[in-house]
Design a protein around this nucleic acid. Structure first.
Length: 512
RNA sequence: GCGGGAGUAGCUCAGCUGGCUAGAGCAUUAGCCUUCCAAGCUAAGGGUCGCGGGUUCGAAUCCCGUUUCCCGCUCCA
């Protein structure tokens, strides 16, 4: 375990040292759980996006991409359920240091009374056997009535407190009921605090309830509200998908583990609209398709794990995560959800607009079902970094740190290195540099010994190095050095250029 | 939000029973050397010791507060 913790630390240091990820506002001591992507990080991130976008949009004739605004009409979040569900009243027990949802504590308390009623019913059944009339019993038994009265009373108070967002009343209710912490058994509670997972801000210069809008907590709703626009203008036929890459914001209580959980993050989502009844077979299809996408990167199948959700969100009828083996263990990387027609139906209701698809073959219209694939871009970035980072022991006993980033994703594809800084070698190297630049991200480096420059490029994951030596001036051959094997081959400049361009092309990942 | 640990140069850290101008290695820059797998030579730059306050003749070091990061709990559509 200690080694895993160390390895995340090493990766964080490495990411900062080489310009992949910096703490945001670093010179002001950073901002909690916010990070900036540096010169190499931005490049790597863009490459990941490109891989995802192309495999979704370019490789599927029935998937198109959009880019919706972060600001959306406030009612969107009422319809989606986020306003209600992303709003939790929380309370801490001061002794056990445990945190609970205040309303859940009360509900669990209510459940105790319900259990008592159930017990009475069972007792009654035993005593009276077949002659027992449950309904009659519930209406007349004094013990039951007393408990039921309690339940009703608590429920009334709980609802009143929740509806008025009266946090003090909620706390008072917990104290009056003498609810104790299940762990410590203590009744030493903090204040109840409201945690809203959505960031809000004001639209326009006049503040007020009407102008209060949210930063989107997920990108999916931007797709749902554009369902008809895209379907009509793109003449899309079901099944079809809409893809989107964009930022989302959640005011997490604790955001941690480097870029794994941030308050501002980027999602790559695709909502696939299907005929009702066919959603589960498409769900399976996308599960497999997405695993294939991950496995094409070659990190190893054992790095991934499929985790089915047992407890489903209110909108889903099937859900699973693709988990990745991060240094801190297997964690969610991508979610695949069968969202049914929940979202479109809700938007129909709240907007009053029909969000239906007319199926010409069946000659009927319906609200499509939705299968969603949703991957965290920042998590994908972290997964790539973690899987690529290796501290290798070489045969001669020395060590090297190398990022074995898949070639197509590597921020820099090739380094052009003159063996020495004289005899016209830099000039020759520059020629090659300029030839390659229009095609791939290329670095030129003439400082320090050749071995040192190789190591520097290993550390940022450059898959190829082209070394220009004296022989190059005579016969136009160079040494092509491979990052992963450290092997070298002597080939012509022309061959080397072709090889580098071909091997690092994103197309090598897209063949399906 | 609670508890634990930490914050000193770009990175990794030493110094921290208070006391000269705050150090090392690596990295960076310039020059030398010219060598196909780091760690050759010379020189230089870089730090208000996370921030604020206090104690003291004197604080990186002691005290208080605060902030950021890591770990655990918690939360996680």
């Amino acid at each position: 375990m200690a080694t895993n913790e160390d390895s995340l630390k090493n990766i964080i240091s490495h990411a900062k040292e080489y310009g992949f990820v910096f703490p945001s506002s670093d010179i002001y001591d950073g901002l909690s759980a916010t990070y900036d992507y540096g010169q190499l990080g931005a490049q790597l991130k863009n490459n990941i996006k490109e891989y995802w976008w192309k495999s979704m949009v370019q490789m599927h004739e029935n998937i198109v991409g959009i880019d919706a605004a972060i600001f959306m009409h406030p009612t969107v979040w009422k319809a989606s359920g986020h306003v209600d569900a992303f709003n939790d009243p929380l309370i801490d027990n001061k002794d056990s240091k445990k945190r609970y949802r205040a309303d859940v504590l009360v509900e669990e308390h209510i459940a105790k009374y319900e259990a008592k009623i159930q017990k009475e019913v069972e007792k009654g059944q035993k005593r009276f056997g077949d002659a027992f009339d449950t309904e009659q019993f519930l209406k007349t038994n004094p013990n039951v009535l007393r408990n039921q009265e309690k339940i009703d009373e608590i429920n009334t108070k709980l609802e009143a407190a929740l509806n008025d967002s009266n946090l003090d009343a909620l706390r008072q209710l917990i104290i009056d009921l003498e609810i104790a912490c299940p762990i410590s058994g203590s009744k030493n509670w903090t204040e109840v605090r409201q945690f809203n997972l959505m960031f809000s801000t004001e639209l326009g210069s006049v503040a007020g309830d009407a102008a209060k809008i949210y930063l989107r907590p997920e990108t999916a709703q931007g797709i749902f509200v554009n369902f008809l626009n895209v379907q009509k203008t793109g003449r899309m036929k079901i099944p079809f998908g809409i893809a989107q890459i964009g930022k989302a914001f959640r005011n997490e209580i604790v955001a941690r583990q480097f870029i794994f959980r941030m308050r501002e993050f980027e999602q790559m989502e695709m909502q696939f609209f299907v005929k009702p009844g066919e959603e589960l077979q498409w769900y399976k299809y996308w599960q497999e398709a997405r695993l294939k996408w991950h496995n094409a990167l070659g990190f190893g199948e054992n790095k991934y794990r499929l985790h089915d959700h047992l407890k489903l969100a209110h909108y889903a009828n099937a859900a699973s995560d693709i988990e990745f083996d991060f240094p801190m263990g297997f964690k969610e990387l991508e979610g695949i959800h069968s969202r049914t027609d929940f979202d479109l139906k809700q938007h129909e209701e709240f907007s009053g607009k029909k969000l239906r698809y007319f199926d010409p073959e069946a000659n009927e219209n319906y609200i499509p079902y939705v299968v969603e694939t949703s991957i965290g871009l920042d998590r994908m970035f972290l997964a790539t970094l973690c899987a690529s980072y290796q501290n290798e022991k070489l045969e001669d006993g020395s060590e090297r740190v190398v990022l074995k980033i898949p070639m197509a994703l590597a921020p820099v594809k090739v380094a052009i290195l003159p063996l020495v800084k004289k005899d016209g070698l830099p000039e020759k190297a520059m020629e090659i540099f300029n030839q390659l630049r229009p095609f791939v991200q290329t670095n030129y480096d003439e400082k320090d010994s050749i071995g040192k420059r190789y190591r520097r490029n290993d550390a940022i994951g450059t898959p190829f190095a082209i070394t220009v030596d004296h022989q190059t001036l005579e016969d136009n051959t160079i040494t092509l050095r491979h990052r992963d094997s450290m092997e070298q081959e002597r080939i012509s400049i022309k061959e080397a250029i072709e090889k580098v361009i071909q091997k690092t092309d994103i197309r090598s990942l897209l063949s399906c």
